[in-house]
Design a protein around this nucleic acid. Structure first.
Lengths: 146, 146
DNA sequence: TTTATAAAAGATATTTTTATCTTTTATCGA
DNA sequence: TCGATAAAAGATAAAAATATCTTTTATAAA
């Protein structure tokens, strides 16, 4: 559905949201462990998210990643758009360049419905809404949750 | 959503379904033009689909690809499974290996619904059901439909 | 039986995605 | 101010996906 990069990105942001909810900052090392991703790879991804304003960061000792009040309200759709682009929400299911209402692919209409549902879901879901679930270990961001 | 290989595969099978509906056979060259895909690449993909029994073929002069009565009834889900595997129907939306009912990722339940809708749609859609639409140019398998 | 045709098979190349490594810059605390 | 820390930036590497090329095999028609 999403690229691996995008999956890591979402997990990282949810992790940062939870871990920094009281103003703390979270290091790459912590994030990498917390979501079970390659350390250098998630660093690159966070660099990108930081540039686009989806997460905030500070260098140096006691530095790390956190979310501004504004960033806490971002949706999962914002992250997906930042990493994978709009293709998954608007592109043709069969990869036809000019697929449109006027010249539709055979599954155009059915796919439109599913894509809309996906977008609506991601759009309404905000990155800080899982904090308590994650805290209570009712939801997880990696496989080794022991 | 699907890999490019899978998009080509679906388009190719729909094209073969339409073009071979009266017992004709369709050449790779014709398929490649009909769906606007690289000739050698679609040849490789059809080889795979042929091995898995999703399309039939015959070598030599007057040879080409066609669909048996059985193959005509295959669903789009069958093609997706053959090329991309089950991951899109069953895998975790955030790429967590052991995501499950017991240890769910944060979006597990919402995604389950969307994945099910996608699967149901692809499962109920059969490869030969677009023949008349395609014939009447009410649906298209490539961008240059002139 | 020979020749032409068209897919199958196998090998190779290119591009994109995923991942890693090294150096630089900013910031904090001693 | 200096040293340690942590992210940013840039370069490189490995793996996977996409694409192409060449040779072989099966089939049909002349």
């Amino acid at each position: 559905m999403f690229s691996k990069t995008c999956e890591y990105a979402i997990r990282a942001v949810l992790y940062i949201a939870q871990m920094s909810k009281n103003g703390e900052k979270v290091s790459i090392k912590s994030i990498s462990k917390g979501i079970d991703s390659p350390e250098h790879f998630i660093a690159k991804i966070l660099q990108e998210l930081s540039k686009k304003g989806l997460v905030q960061s500070l260098k140096g000792p006691t530095g790390g990643f956190y979310l501004s009040e504004h960033s806490k309200k971002h949706s999962l759709a914002d992250i997906v758009k930042a990493i994978d682009g709009e293709k998954i929400f608007t592109g043709c299911g069969l990869g036809i360049g000019q697929c449109s209402e006027e010249f539709p692919c055979p599954i155009h209409n059915d796919f439109k419905v599913i894509r809309k549902k996906l977008f609506d879901l991601l759009q309404k879901t905000k990155v800080n809404e899982f904090n308590t679930q994650l805290e209570a270990k009712l939801a997880f961001l990696k496989k080794n949750h022991t």
